[in-house]
């Protein structure tokens, strides 16, 4: 009868897609340095959630994942996001919601990557808007699981009710994101760019050699 069917089923779907993404990453992924970079960003983003645990949904993780994707691209962005969820839950408690969070934050990173690739002049503004939007979307994705696992019956009404119950948290999340992005965004993006520069090598031509 109970929601464990749906809970488990959805969990399997999400986990399976995560596994597929990781497998894909395992085959294509780049050098040790890229891996080290992703690992660190993920650990950093994940850990940054811990000191804020007392205030639900206020945390810099979403923002950090977003700018990681923005600077390093969609693939690394996804990995950073999903790993960050994994890491932070080592402290805040793992549970069946972990895969959902991994997926949601992964998508945050992915969207950052897309925004980063699509260069236009209102980058700052669009980052602010995107970070606000993700505050809401993130909650909605997670609520699906909540709804499936802990709520009975599974009707549209109860679904909307669940979404509405979290609206305050989502708004806090969204405005937190905007806050972090506004005050720390530029600085941290600068740091990330510096490390991106360290990933790019150019070679000197013979003439340049002569001149130097």
């Amino acid at each position: 009868m109970l929601s464990t069917h749906w809970s488990l089923f959805s969990l399997v779907i999400v986990s399976a897609s995560l596994v597929i993404i990781y497998l894909w990453y395992d085959r294509k992924a780049g050098s040790t340095k890229e891996i080290a970079l992703i690992a660190t960003l993920a650990a950093f983003a994940g850990l940054s959630r811990v000191p804020f645990a007392a205030i639900p949904s206020l945390q810099p993780t979403t923002f950090l994942v977003l700018i990681s994707g923005y600077v390093f691209g969609a693939g690394p962005g996804f990995m950073v996001g999903s790993l960050a969820a994994f890491v932070s839950n080592l402290f805040l408690g793992h549970g069946p919601w972990t895969p959902w969070q991994m997926m949601a934050w992964g998508l945050v990173g992915l969207s950052g990557g897309i925004l980063g690739r699509w260069k236009w002049k209102y980058a700052n503004l669009s980052l602010l808007i995107l970070s606000f939007m993700w505050g809401l979307f993130f909650g909605w994705i997670l609520n699906i699981w909540h709804w499936l696992t802990f709520v009975y019956p599974l009707t549209l009404k109860s679904f909307i009710a669940v979404q509405l119950t979290s609206i305050w948290f989502d708004l806090i999340h969204a405005s937190g994101n905007v806050f972090f992005m506004y005050f720390l965004g530029a600085d941290l993006i600068k740091i990330l760019h510096r490390f991106k520069r360290r990933l790019t090598v150019s070679s000197l031509s013979v003439q340049e050699l002569e001149r130097s």
Partner: peptide, 11 residues
Amino acid sequence: LPDYYGGKIGG
């Protein structure tokens, strides 16, 4: 050298 530091290399 160039791998982990970026920059320009010749020779």
